[in-house]
């Protein structure tokens, strides 16, 4: 009976270790979207013999943290039913890591690197999200094509 108890204790140790492992891997890195929760970019004017005027929104930002090991990155991707217009996103001032440059969000495309080289022990760093919507005259308007409603997903993961 004593031996059985000993085995039970050993088994408990394994389970606790496994839980701690999961916690260390999963709970160390976090990412949040702050500011205007669901921004809307509305194109209302254009240039004769030119193109419609881009609209920029900088009302959102990312806040991210990383655990005390490894280098991390943030990727961005989108899904949008019947995408008609162009949506781009860039961050120019990430507090930690390096901006991967402007990303054109294309529905269903593989997620693109957004911020790379985020070091370990990053604690609540911020990066402003700058969305730019653009369209050409020949692409029509939302009355005919419908609004482009993107679900933009940011993922923090090991680099």
């Amino acid at each position: 009976m004593k031996k059985l108890l000993h085995r039970c204790l050993r088994f408990s140790f394994y389970v606790v270790s496994l839980v701690l492992l999961i916690y260390a891997e999963g709970a160390g890195q976090t990412i949040r979207i702050r500011g205007t929760r669901n921004p809307t970019l509305r194109i209302t004017s254009g240039i004769p013999d030119g193109q419609l005027i881009d609209v920029v929104n900088t009302g959102c930002s990312l806040r991210y943290s990383t655990p005390n090991y490894r280098t991390w990155k943030i990727t961005v991707g989108t899904t949008c039913m019947n995408q008609s217009f162009t949506l781009r996103v860039v961050t120019t001032n990430p507090q930690r890591g390096t901006s991967a440059g402007e990303v054109t969000l294309i529905s269903g495309a593989q997620a693109s690197d957004f911020i790379t080289g985020i070091p370990s022990n990053t604690n609540r760093a911020n990066a402003t999200l700058q969305y730019t919507a653009s369209a050409t005259f020949d692409q029509g308007h939302s009355g005919d094509e419908g609004n482009d409603r993107h679900t933009v997903t940011y993922t923090i993961q090991r680099q």
Partner: peptide, 12 residues
């Protein structure tokens, strides 16, 4: 990995 999403709407 951890992900967060939000909705961005483009109206022309």
């Amino acid at each position: 990995s951890q992900s967060r999403s939000h909705t961005v709407t483009v109206i022309v």
